[in-house]
Nucleic acid binder design. Structure first.
Lengths: 131, 131
DNA sequence: GCTACTAGTATCAAAAAGGATACCGCCATG
DNA sequence: CATGGCGGTATCCTTTTTGATACTAGTAGC
């Protein structure tokens, strides 16, 4: 299977695959992206309540990084009490195929992740069908 | 755009998207996967020479993790000098759509990553087209 | 007056990831 | 005899990431 697709591959260090992965590698980023994809627009505490277990610091953190990377939009309303809404940018919405592919793969191989899921590390059960 | 896809989304903490991402989040993992996808089977030092800048320790490390996750196959030949061949498992090959989607996105938004690429952090240039 | 809500910060500590370097046995080559 | 290729380990250290906790300002409700 190797030789055929050879042409368009060029994963030198710093390639676009690496780059794209790095944008969604934060511990909670894909969850945030997923919720925003699902619900369109959410306020800070709405996200916080949905995600559960995430600390305020981490949520702020992940949101900031996603914003810096141009994947989400942050809308601040000059009110009191404060109101801040988060939504996907166009660029963020374009991640959809990636998220879908990830989900498809994850669902197909869900057996890898024991009952404790990815959080609890031991997703072993190596598959040696060789090459 | 939100309401329509609602049905098959269920990104609770530990969802399959998170899980899948975590398997390719290592610093060199997607590069390794890419090379194996491209070339089919490679020996340890062949990978090492291709990747450049990776230390022996990190390569061993990433390969071990990929093996544990069932994405690559490690074939040891009882020779001297030693010979160890790495290749993708079926499960690993099924990552292809993900890698492709990542590459497509990365290529489309390559402008995000300044001349120093992802390695040098500052991929700013936020895009505020709102939602 | 006390409480809670909003969307955060600040500070500290712990854990995980990554990097540098040196070393291993064994063989072939020079 | 020294060197290099092979596929790693072992050890130590630094950086990055994540987590826990406490704090902020201004308003509303009790």
């Amino acid at each position: 299977m190797a030789k055929t697709l050879h042409s368009r591959f060029d994963c030198t260090p710093g390639c676009s695959v690496e780059a794209a992965v790095s944008l969604i590698s934060g511990k909670w980023k894909c969850v945030v992206l997923w919720y925003l994809l699902e619900e369109g627009t959410l306020r800070f505490n709405e996200l916080r309540r949905r995600i559960e277990n995430i600390t305020q610091r981490m949520l702020t953190n992940q949101l900031r990084e996603l914003e810096i990377d141009g994947l989400i939009h942050r809308e601040v309303y000059a009110q009191v009490p404060p109101k801040v809404e988060y939504s996907l940018t166009q660029r963020g919405r374009e991640l959809t195929p990636i998220l879908m592919a990830l989900k498809a793969w994850g669902d197909a191989h869900i057996d890898l992740f024991g009952k404790d899921g990815i959080a609890g590390k031991p997703y072993a059960v190596a598959a040696d069908e060789g090459a």
